[in-house]
Design a protein around this nucleic acid. Structure first.
Lengths: 221, 221
DNA sequence: CCGGACGTGGCAGCTTGCTGCCACCGCGTT
DNA sequence: AACGCGGTGGCAGCAAGCTGCCACGTCCGG
């Protein structure tokens, strides 16, 4: 039995001081998962790290960033992400919550952030191969299940109302239009209008395509 | 800055000796992610742990198990999983690889297994809250994206032939039946027969449902 | 009060999807 | 040759989906 250490630091400044060199040391891959873009809220910490990071496009460094839809809340964030895309960074959106920020560098080091709380934020740095590989494979699973940012923005039916969701459920249940309409208290005409609107929103040319899109976007629940 | 320890043990026996009490101490939740069912290959280790685990159904202990399709390879494994289901355990299948087994108990302890390798297997046990919470949220993301075992077994279209895939692509492309049939060199009648067969295979009552299923099962590529 | 915008629903007519029936063809078996 | 079998395709008819048109309400802002 052996015992490795994991380091816990409090606050961005200490993280930069203790682990900044890890960011600079990224050789092949830099992956991170986070809820939104607010991680490095302190500008000086962000700049400090950015200065040390190699250029994303250069040197064969693959950068993958996984966010939740929260990261697309305001237009500024969208613009930022679009810009990030142009530098060769892969960005995906996961429909499931990612409350704890996770960073894995070169599959050798990982940094996990504690939940937002009053006081300085806690970061935990670990290098145990088993630990890092385990986290990495979970990240990979979440990554694979997430959708490309561009696809997400394109096919996004941003906030379809409850009506549309009800229509979606009826369609997914396999009801015929007539029973679905009756079930929803709508006329056949209106129900079909709704379906047409939905298909329009999903940019689907057929009901099959609409189902496909709905499935891809995880609108089943 | 503080330093927690993570414990690494080699082999099932040592894991049971060092961490067996953690299994017994599960109070609220026991989640694990693994590639297949071979984890506790050594029967004595499996039994030793099973003996210490509280009954899954009893005592409000929620048990979640996430596997890859590999876990369904042989009929014995399927039967075992079906039996497990009856004891109140939730089982889901993730289409992405999960090379490293992960266990999280009560969101307080986690155990990560190293990749299969010659010699005794390594297990890493950690209790750092930040670490455990981070891993847990990644697990949750993978879990949410996975499909229920029953749904997976039901909707499984094991090996549909190239023709069916072509039909699927035509449907996904949004072609009308006529153009799709022409495009595939089939008569309209036959094409529709194929579509009907496909919908039958997917147990879909409408084309929308078929699209949904196809999306869920990742048959788009 | 009037007029317009908007959502709804009925009607009609068209397109598309769906399927039962039958006929045909190629193939291997008897 | 005769037969059955499985895949194909035409035809017909029905069911379902789709949409333009118009009419009727409601809800404003004028």
């Amino acid at each position: 039995m052996t015992a490795d250490k994991v380091i816990t630091v409090r606050g961005d400044a200490e993280l930069v001081a203790r682990a900044g060199h890890l960011f600079a040391g990224a050789r092949h891959e830099f992956v991170c998962a986070a809820r939104d873009l607010d991680t490095w809220s302190q500008p000086e910490a962000r700049r400090s790290v950015a200065r040390r990071m190699p250029g994303p496009g250069a040197s064969g460094l693959a950068v993958k960033k996984l966010f939740t839809p929260v990261a697309l809340a305001d237009e500024a964030a969208r613009a930022h992400l679009r810009e990030v895309l142009t530098t060769g960074v892969e960005v995906r959106i996961s429909s499931t919550p990612l409350p704890h920020e996770t960073i894995v560098i070169d599959r050798r080091v990982m940094i996990l952030a504690g939940r937002d709380a009053p006081g300085p934020r806690e970061y935990t740095v670990a290098t145990s191969p088993t630990l890092v590989n385990g986290v990495y494979s979970l990240f990979a699973a979440a990554w694979d299940a997430a959708t490309e940012l561009t696809a997400y923005l394109r096919g996004d039916a941003p906030n379809l109302d409850d009506d549309s969701r009800a229509v979606l459920r009826a369609l997914g249940a396999g009801y015929t239009d007539e029973t679905a309409a009756r079930h929803l208290g709508l006329s056949l005409r209106t129900y079909r209008r709704r379906v047409a609107e939905l298909m329009d929103a999903l940019e689907a040319g057929s009901r099959f395509q609409a189902g496909l899109r709905a499935g891809e976007l995880g609108l089943t629940g």
